[in-house]
Computed example of a mutant assay.
Amino acid sequence: MTTADPYRPTPARLHNAILGGKDHYAPDHALATSLAANKITPAITESRRFILRAVEYLIDQHEVSQFVELGCGYPHAPNIHEIAGDRNDDLTRILYIDNDPVVAAYGRALLTGPNRFFTDTDLTDTSAVLGDIIAVMDTARPIAVFVSGTAELISDAPAMVTALTDRLASGTWMVFTHITDDVHTHQIHSATQVFRSAGIAYHARGRDEITAMLTGYRLVTPGLIAPHRWRPVPGTGVPALSTTPRHRAASDLSAYAAVGRLHR
């Protein structure tokens, strides 16, 4: 039986605390509180809202109904399957992947329902990840892969994303966010040190490195941009977390976001 250490923050629980969820312990809450005034906090929260807007966009504009979230963390309403299900529940197929054993236990218990799947595959094992996708998705229809709040936790994330891209079918969508130290550099470096002091390896990256990770994808307008500036239209009105940005459009954020389609 898997147990959780309540005395040491984990990436999944900390992310949940920053987003205002309930699946975390006192150390996670304390760490999130210490970062509340840091510019990394709105970057993380707006990245989440972008992800949900991207789901709506892909369904409404491109008839995508199959979604894979890599490093999904604890379920946090609204989840991708709730946004997608609100649009077209009959065709929606969701695969969540996270190798945190406690997250996996939560996911399997809470993310129940038809055409919802959860695996605890190591994301750096891209062959296994692709196997998971092929096992549950209809490869004859478009698939969207989400990487948000995940690459920052993987030291060799550029290699991981490139290896996955090499194995994905042409036409696959990528929805991507990444915290950057290009903007508010001092605060992001400070936040990174806070993460690392808590035992969480964290890697903010610059625009050039993030752009390279998206090689092969044709980005839809407006391209690689701060998440709160990516198509900031009203969402579904789900009360738990609106998809509409809350950060002022004129204010910079320490994150990039993009939606692109793999083209070979």
Score class of each variant (00 low, 15 high):
1 M>S: 12
2 T>H: 07
3 T>E: 14
4 A>R: 05
5 D>C: 02
7 Y>S: 13
7 Y>Q: 12
10 T>E: 01
10 T>D: 01
11 P>Y: 03
12 A>L: 04
12 A>Y: 00
14 L>T: 08
15 H>P: 00
20 G>T: 05
21 G>V: 02
22 K>E: 09
26 A>V: 06
27 P>H: 11
32 A>S: 06
33 T>R: 12
40 I>K: 10
41 T>A: 08
46 E>V: 11
46 E>K: 09
46 E>I: 07
47 S>Y: 01
47 S>N: 00
50 F>R: 01
54 A>C: 04
54 A>T: 03
54 A>V: 06
54 A>E: 11
57 Y>N: 04
60 D>N: 08
60 D>Y: 00
61 Q>E: 14
61 Q>S: 12
62 H>A: 00
67 F>M: 05
68 V>S: 06
71 G>A: 07
72 C>S: 15
74 Y>K: 01
78 P>D: 03
79 N>T: 06
82 E>H: 13
85 G>K: 00
87 R>C: 08
89 D>A: 14
91 L>N: 12
92 T>V: 15
96 Y>D: 06
100 D>C: 07
106 Y>M: 11
106 Y>G: 03
107 G>V: 02
107 G>I: 01
108 R>T: 03
108 R>H: 07
112 T>L: 05
113 G>M: 02
115 N>K: 14
117 F>V: 01
117 F>A: 01
118 F>L: 03
118 F>Y: 07
120 D>Q: 04
123 L>D: 02
127 S>T: 10
127 S>H: 09
128 A>F: 04
129 V>N: 00
135 A>F: 03
137 M>Q: 10
138 D>A: 11
138 D>N: 15
140 A>S: 13
140 A>T: 12
140 A>R: 10
142 P>H: 00
146 F>W: 11
147 V>R: 08
148 S>T: 13
148 S>D: 04
150 T>F: 10
150 T>E: 10
151 A>W: 12
152 E>S: 15
153 L>Q: 13
154 I>H: 13
155 S>F: 13
158 P>D: 13
159 A>L: 09
161 V>R: 14
162 T>A: 14
163 A>V: 10
164 L>C: 14
165 T>Q: 09
169 A>W: 09
172 T>F: 05
174 M>C: 08
176 F>T: 04
177 T>L: 04
179 I>L: 12
180 T>K: 08
180 T>P: 10
183 V>N: 11
184 H>K: 03
185 T>A: 12
186 H>C: 00
189 H>C: 03
191 A>V: 02
193 Q>W: 01
195 F>E: 03
198 A>L: 02
199 G>E: 04
200 I>D: 08
203 H>Y: 15
203 H>I: 04
207 R>H: 05
209 E>N: 03
210 I>W: 08
211 T>H: 09
216 G>A: 10
217 Y>F: 15
219 L>P: 10
220 V>C: 05
221 T>V: 02
222 P>Y: 13
224 L>Y: 10
226 A>Y: 07
226 A>K: 07
229 R>C: 15
237 G>M: 12
238 V>A: 12
240 A>K: 14
241 L>I: 09
243 T>L: 07
244 T>M: 15
245 P>E: 11
247 H>C: 11
248 R>L: 15
249 A>I: 14
251 S>D: 15
251 S>L: 14
251 S>W: 11
255 A>R: 10
256 Y>F: 13
256 Y>H: 07
257 A>D: 11
263 H>Y: 05
264 R>W: 14
264 R>M: 12
